[in-house]
């Protein structure tokens, strides 16, 4: 029971971490190696607005999500647009931006002291005999709702559908009047906001530390590779596989093997099925 409950919670938090990365890659084929940095900066911005500026927590969250969105869009508009289509340059450029943000935060004094964000709800409840705090429950519900919302968004709204078109065939989308650079910028903004949402849901469970930026990046890459690069639904399912596998290792082997599980999952996927669990595109092409 413990495994089931904590496995689910862990999986949803992994999905939250990876969703933004998966979406940006799926749509614009830009692997955003600054994803972890966007995650952590949202935590610090929220903290600053709440603790230093003294805004209400809700307002602080909304504002910092906006900041993240703008940051993501500017990253594309001013830097990545120049290297789009050259994977290695995209990785180097986005990783460099990530490093600047993360090390800038460290340099700027966000270290030593403990920084924490408040949980949404104090207290805990019992689920099948396992104690779970309310915040984790809220996080799981919002996480699942977010995935459902994203599905609706990409299937029913004009922009969402255009993003889907771009993800499948950029040039065919262009022929229909969809501007590739604009959509990539929108996707990057969305990805950054999703990273921020993940941060605000996950960070209250611990301290905000710069290092978790790197951790989040690695986990995002792991779920995306296992799920099949480019398929954000695949990433969602992969999060569950890795999530449960991690909890199982924690219970039966030891907690410091968590990271090993993620790395192992990447390596195994690359060896056994390089297109990932949901490498749909390839399969379809083979059938037609």
């Amino acid at each position: 029971m413990e495994i089931l409950v904590y496995g689910t919670i862990n999986s949803v938090s992994l999905a939250l971490m990876g969703l933004g990365f998966a979406m940006v890659y799926g749509i614009s084929r830009v692997p955003n190696f600054a994803h972890g940095a966007l995650y952590i900066i949202c935590g610090f911005v929220t903290w600053t607005l709440f603790q230093i500026v003294g805004l209400s927590y809700f307002v602080a969250i909304i504002l910092s999500l906006c900041v993240n969105g703008i940051l993501g869009m500017s990253m594309y508009r001013f830097v990545l647009i120049r290297v789009r289509g050259m994977s290695i340059s995209e990785i180097i450029a986005s990783y460099a931006i990530g490093l600047v943000i993360l090390e800038g935060l460290r340099f700027g004094g966000f270290r030593g002291m403990t920084y924490t964000l408040p949980v949404f709800m104090e207290g805990s409840l019992m689920i099948g005999g396992v104690p779970v705090d309310y915040h984790r429950v809220v996080m799981t519900i919002i996480g699942v709702a977010l995935v459902a919302g994203l599905w609706v968004f990409t299937h029913y709204t004009r922009i969402g559908l255009a993003l889907q078109g771009m993800a499948q065939d950029e040039r065919a989308a262009m022929m229909l009047g969809i501007d590739s650079d604009f959509m990539a910028m929108v996707a990057m903004g969305f990805g950054a906001v999703l990273a921020g949402v993940a941060a605000i849901l996950i960070l209250p469970l611990g301290n905000i530390v710069v290092e978790s930026g790197y951790h989040v990046l690695i986990m995002s890459i792991a779920v995306c590779i296992v799920g099949g690069l480019g398929s954000w639904m695949g990433a969602f399912f992969a999060a569950f596989i890795i999530g449960y596998a991690q909890i199982l290792t924690v219970v039966y082997i030891g907690s410091h093997f968590q990271m090993v599980v993620a790395i192992l999952a990447i390596i195994l996927t690359l060896i056994l099925k390089p297109s990932g669990l949901f490498g749909q595109q390839k399969e379809l092409e083979e059938r037609v």
Binding site: L161, A162, Q164, Q168, A172, L284
Partner: peptide, 12 residues
């Protein structure tokens, strides 16, 4: 768009 339905193709 091979992974989208006919209706979605038209909507895109």
């Amino acid at each position: 768009f091979k992974e989208s339905s006919v209706l979605e193709n038209l909507r895109i």
